[in-house]
């Protein structure tokens, strides 16, 4: 468990509101459709859904804030 495919899946949850919404509604089915293996699908079934929503919102705000900053300050 823990693979490039799982990291891509998580990156999508953190950046794509529709993907996150689909996962929250049907974790197992969404993970299976993404091609994750059985162990990964099982592990994601009990994911911290509240935390996923809060983390995704925080990352969204970070991206928005960064895009408004001058280049020298983008990574703060």
């Amino acid at each position: 468990m823990s693979s490039p495919a799982l990291e891509e899946f998580l990156a999508r949850l953190y950046t794509d509101e529709a993907a996150l919404s689909a996962f929250l509604s049907a974790p197992t089915e969404t993970a299976r459709a993404a091609g994750l293996d059985h162990a990964e699908i099982s592990a994601l079934a009990g994911a911290d859904q509240t935390g996923l929503v809060m983390a995704a919102a925080s990352f969204r705000a970070k991206r928005a804030r960064r895009s408004r900053r001058p280049p020298l300050l983008r990574w703060i």
Binding site: S2, L10, A11, T15, F59, R63
Partner: peptide, 21 residues
């Protein structure tokens, strides 16, 4: 981890805490 499959998260994300990571 900060990206996956070409998707940039834009900030510091915790990877699965596993032996593989």
């Amino acid at each position: 981890f900060v990206r996956g499959g070409g998707i940039e998260i834009g900030h510091l994300a915790p990877p699965p805490r596993t032996e593989a990571s």
